[in-house]
Design a protein around this nucleic acid. Sequence first.
DNA 1: CATAACCCTG
DNA 2: CAGGGTTATG
Length: 616
Amino acid sequence: KNISVHHLNCMHNSSEGCLEDDKPDVMLPCFRRNMYEEPLALYSNGSIISQLRKTIHNKRALDESLFYLSSSTAADSGQEDQCSVSSKDSTVEAQSPSAHVATGASAEAEHPVPDHLQAKRARVENIIRVMAGSPNSRQHGDSERSDTDAREAREAYRENKRKQRLPQHQEHSAAGPDEECHKLKEQLHSMQRLLRQLQEKFLQVYNQEDPEHNECGDRMKAQSNVSHQRESPNLQEALKKELSRAVNDCVDRVFKKVSSTGLDLSPQQRMCSSPEVSAGADGKSQRAGSTQEQPQDQEAAAKPRSLEYYESSKAHSPQDQTEALSLVVRKPAVAPLSSVTPTVKRPYPVHQTPFQFNYSTPLHDSQILEHLLKYGPHSNFGVLPCMPPSMDRTSPDSVDLPWDTIAMRSKVTPGHLGHHARASALGAVTVDNLCLPHVKIECGELQGMAERNPYMSLNISFRLKKKSHLKKAKLMFFYTRYPSSNVLKTFFPDVKFNRCITSQLIKWFSNFREFYYIQMEKFARQAIVDGISDVKDMTVSRDSELFRALNMHYNKANDFHVPDRFLEVSEVTLHEFYTAISAAKDSDPSWKKAIYKVICKLDSDVPEEFKTSSYL
DNA sequence: CATAACCCTG
DNA sequence: CAGGGTTATG
């Protein structure tokens, strides 16, 4: 781990610098290919696993800088280590059921397989590939472009798989076609289990949706001045729709293909297929469906934003803020506001409802879930990153995120924890604790889906994205003018921190401050020129010119509700400048330092919401 | 010598 | 906002 982290740092320092444009083209082709094929190329279980693990581990140490796999900072290494074994294994396994086939493939070296069996095996192989979301499938009407890419990716993948598998050939020789069938069935069972769990979850969601729905909607309207806030109520439905469709598609595909290969399925197995889910989800989301039907891309980009706006505006609702905060209050007094209040945080309590995973078989099920999440309902996901993302993305913000390597973690609250409040008070239990694998996904739409999925948080790319992260940093400035590097680390969890990144962020805030103080000085001097004699006559309100200047700078889009606290701090700053200048203290070359000292004590805590959302 | 804050400039 | 120079700390 140390090695890989170090390696990572070197990468940053030497090649890329620390800042990455939001432009998505930073991913090198080889990078993509690796990302795509590695999980597919490595799969094992049973006795060979330890050896494989070693191989994987070594490979990973080298490749991690490319994968940016998991947030393996030194800080969380302890936690991760606890899970590292299962995590690694499951990562591999979860992502590549198709490698099952590898098992059978080598069998024929020793026992030539009859033709019909071979054909059957080929079919099975195909099924699994489809299940894994291989580029093969075109059921969703892929464009020519992605078809081409699909082929290329597939071929590269096969080519490489062959090579990679070669050294370990003997290890797979035990299993045969029967084994495959067995494994297939096992997988089916797991899918069914998962499906049932999802169904239950969806039902719960629906049952409590409507009251919650309206209530939240109203509250939101009252508290937010974001123009497109209306979209928020549809988030759930969009999410549910997508998730259920993912499940449906995958399960359906499996059933269809498996049955077409002649494997016999029990009636129950067939019955567990998707109809109920699809009926529930699609039926419910009908009204939203009409509007969101078409541009999935835009939808994916737009929805998460509105949700987050909603969340933040809610958390900053006047009731929460105005009374609790006073300028003289020290940080600790402010802290409870943003960090310890669990109840106000989520507009949709259902978001915290945990999946009831069957923990007796956690790995298997979660593997499949992640499979679904990874490859999603659109089977061509695997190749999407190969094409220029901008072509499909119309929303400007969408360019920020989609096409980077992201490690995805489900924010699953373990069922036995029970109470949501408890879980959220603890800051949400991430999947790491469940030893679920870190999954790399590389699809914008999936990411959009994940953004909307309350059970997931994303670790995106681990690098600074100028556009999105800068925006976030600016918004954070409304709360803290002097963030410590710890705060920065905390609130940019999707960034892999190194020296360069840290100083970059610090530099940003330094620049922010610079602008801030320049404005303050300017307006203070103007007030003096204007003949204002009493500081009390200088106030900073939302419609004052000073605020407008600041808001324009830090919140250009004006889509963020600036906390009142910031107005107060601004006013204090303005007063400080005014009095200092009035007292002719500005003759001292370092007269501002005294002011800085005052202002830096007025930092408040950044709301929790900034932690989860990778951008606002 | 290194780091980071500060200051100034483009 | 980034870059480069300067200063303060250690």
